[in-house]
Amino acid sequence: MMNVKNLNAGYETENGYVPILNKINFSVKKNIILGIAGESGSGKSTLASVLYNSFKYPGKITGGDILFKGNSLFKMKANELRQIRGTQISFIPQAAMNALNPVKKIRLQFYDVMIAHNVHEDKFDEKISSILELVRLNKNVLDSFPHELSGGMKQRVVIAMSLLLSPEFIILDEPTTGLDVLVEHEILADIKKIQEKLGLTMIFISHDLSILFAISDEIIMMYGGEIVESGTYADVLEHPAHPYTYQLMKSIPMIGHKLDRSMIIKGSTIDFTSRPEGCYFSPRCNFAEPDCTGIHPELRAADNAYHLQRCRLYPSWAQRI
């Protein structure tokens, strides 16, 4: 469905270009949820806006390509791109629910989206009611202003809005931050249900590994602007092949676990203006050896051809656990 090839991107600053994304390669298969995991400073938000082609100055793409159904998004003309966005790809950015127009009723905001993409007027109400049912919202919502709705309802409105033009492909960036666990759980369950029912393809970006593993079919782990591990959720969850994944999994707070200082990952996330030598994760890695600060490791197959990882010590580190 979507292919990302050798993507490099970064930001212009007053002191020159700072690279963020480093040779990102992956493809998204049809009808799956691809989860992209990364903490703050992993480059995942940059990746999200590049994927939707909404990456603007001071951001700069320095190489690579993104193919959507075989066509390059970067080479597309502006009006072609506008056509594809919304009707085929839609994007739910971070904190989108706070970006709803505060002085317009929800109904009008729905209309705006459809008018912008030349949907015939007769179909408006039919379309809206079918989608409201899908996201389990009451019709009263249409005649409310955003401030009259709870956080969960607003997030559902945003999801409904992204579905209005029946896209096949949706990118969600942290769709549940700021919601409490009960609402988060319901919305995730609904997203999964909608995805299965409509046969959608999704990229789900989050820093919260727990929800990511719970909902995704495939996982990409990001660290320092590059992919450190990727594979099916079961492979990554049960046999983490990169120490970052392993250490991150161990640090997740969970019912029934005992608090233990060994769960902490030492150090803090990398500074893009001065990356460590060799493996970016080596300063924080519990398994690092002196050689790890030498050559920058490449992505290679772990236990199966589809499970990739970037640690030069694999599989020996994993045997030491």
Partner: peptide
């Protein structure tokens, strides 16, 4: 002008350019 891309974008830059040295 440097940050004319709305505050969200700024936050993103700060996220990704997170300057901290432990």
């Amino acid at each position: 002008r440097f940050d004319s891309k709305k505050s969200k974008k700024n936050k993103k830059i700060n996220d990704d350019l997170n300057v901290n040295t432990e």
